[in-house]
Simulated assay, not measured.
Amino acid sequence: MHSVEFGAGTPVLVIHGFCVDHRLLLGLDPVFDAHGQWRRVYVDLPGMGQTAAGPEIDSTDAVANAVVSFTRETFGDAEFAILGNSFGGMIARHLVAEFGDQVLGVALLCPVVLADHGSRAVPQRTVIRTNPALMATLDPLDAADYEAMSVVQSPGNWSRFRDAALPGLRIFDPAAIERISKNYALREEPEGRFAAFQGPTLILAGRQDHVVGFQDQIALANSYPQSTIVVLDQAGHNAHLDQPVLTAALVKDWLTRVKAWKKSSNVSKT
């Protein structure tokens, strides 16, 4: 699996969503860089970014297994944290079930909770503020992709979407995505594999997220008792792009809690 790595210290695996690549989450890197020593590993999931996907990548389970193998090869027995967005949030939950106490903490940004789109509790698609002048300047294909996800259209919001989301949207493998989509649900729900994850958790959702919603994410917190649950207004499925300042503050708080958890865990082991 292709990955991009920065820094040194406590490992953290950063997992993007569906049909994009690691660049979707690079805007969060300054938060890691400014708050402690973190070895940040940003992956490209199979069939996305620069990671190829052979015919064996035919389901979300296959993607999850590839990430599990990558994680073992990359971190070994070291404790690590996870940040997952959307589809990557579903993979992150799988890793919590797979690695257990080796996971120091997990941040879930607009995570997929229910794989079946029809079963999700989602709000009606809403654009709070349009910007026709901006949209008229964009390439039609870019404009269509941006319009499908934007909640508040502005030059700043567009530039974040352009730099973070569009690159991955232009290079994913359509055949691999089709195979995975046909078997999109994990064979076993991660939370059914553990009683409760005790590590520091952040669950962040967008109030206007019409893709995965926010109600299922709030309910997910029952399995993560040490969780901060936030629903951001004026934020859709790319909440970290729509509300970057608030997201950065929440990720900073999560990192602080993870560091404290690691320290207390190491003390208890001695």
Rank of each mutant, 00 (worst) to 15 (best):
residue 181 S to L: 06
residue 136 A to I: 10
residue 175 A to S: 08
residue 192 G to M: 09
residue 127 V to Y: 04
residue 193 R to N: 14
residue 183 N to M: 07
residue 120 R to C: 13
residue 150 S to C: 02
residue 122 V to C: 06
residue 123 P to M: 04
residue 132 P to T: 05
residue 142 D to K: 02
residue 182 K to Y: 10
residue 195 A to N: 10
residue 193 R to E: 15
residue 189 E to C: 07
residue 154 S to P: 03
residue 143 A to H: 04
residue 196 A to L: 15
residue 184 Y to W: 04
residue 194 F to R: 13
residue 155 P to H: 03
residue 166 L to F: 07
residue 138 L to G: 08
residue 174 P to Q: 08
residue 171 I to W: 00
residue 124 Q to S: 07
residue 177 I to T: 15
residue 164 A to L: 12
residue 174 P to H: 12
residue 130 T to W: 05
residue 151 V to C: 00
residue 181 S to E: 10
residue 137 T to A: 08
residue 155 P to L: 05
residue 163 D to K: 11
residue 189 E to D: 15
residue 118 G to A: 11
residue 193 R to H: 09
residue 161 F to Q: 10
residue 137 T to K: 08
residue 171 I to K: 00
residue 166 L to G: 08
residue 174 P to V: 04
residue 159 S to W: 03
residue 117 H to C: 06
residue 139 D to N: 14
residue 141 L to Q: 15
residue 164 A to I: 13
residue 140 P to K: 03
residue 190 P to F: 05
residue 191 E to W: 15
residue 184 Y to Q: 02
residue 126 T to L: 11
residue 135 M to S: 14
residue 184 Y to D: 03
residue 150 S to K: 01
residue 171 I to T: 06
residue 148 A to T: 01
residue 132 P to W: 07
residue 136 A to E: 14
residue 117 H to E: 14
residue 192 G to P: 03
residue 127 V to G: 01
residue 133 A to N: 11
residue 167 P to S: 05
residue 186 L to E: 04
residue 170 R to N: 03
residue 153 Q to Y: 00
residue 186 L to F: 01
residue 147 E to F: 04
residue 144 A to Q: 14
residue 126 T to D: 04
residue 190 P to H: 13
residue 173 D to W: 07
residue 170 R to P: 03
residue 118 G to W: 02
residue 196 A to S: 13
residue 150 S to M: 00
residue 178 E to Q: 15
residue 146 Y to M: 02
residue 162 R to V: 13
residue 159 S to N: 15
residue 159 S to Q: 15
residue 177 I to C: 03
residue 134 L to I: 14
residue 137 T to F: 01
residue 188 E to N: 09
residue 195 A to V: 09
residue 188 E to I: 13
residue 154 S to L: 03
residue 161 F to V: 04
residue 157 N to F: 00
residue 144 A to H: 08
residue 141 L to M: 11
residue 121 A to S: 13
residue 142 D to P: 02
residue 175 A to N: 14
residue 164 A to G: 13
residue 183 N to Q: 05
residue 161 F to C: 10
residue 132 P to E: 14
residue 192 G to Y: 02
residue 181 S to R: 10
residue 180 I to Y: 07
residue 136 A to S: 12
residue 150 S to D: 01
residue 162 R to L: 15
residue 131 N to G: 02
residue 138 L to D: 07
residue 189 E to W: 06
residue 127 V to D: 04
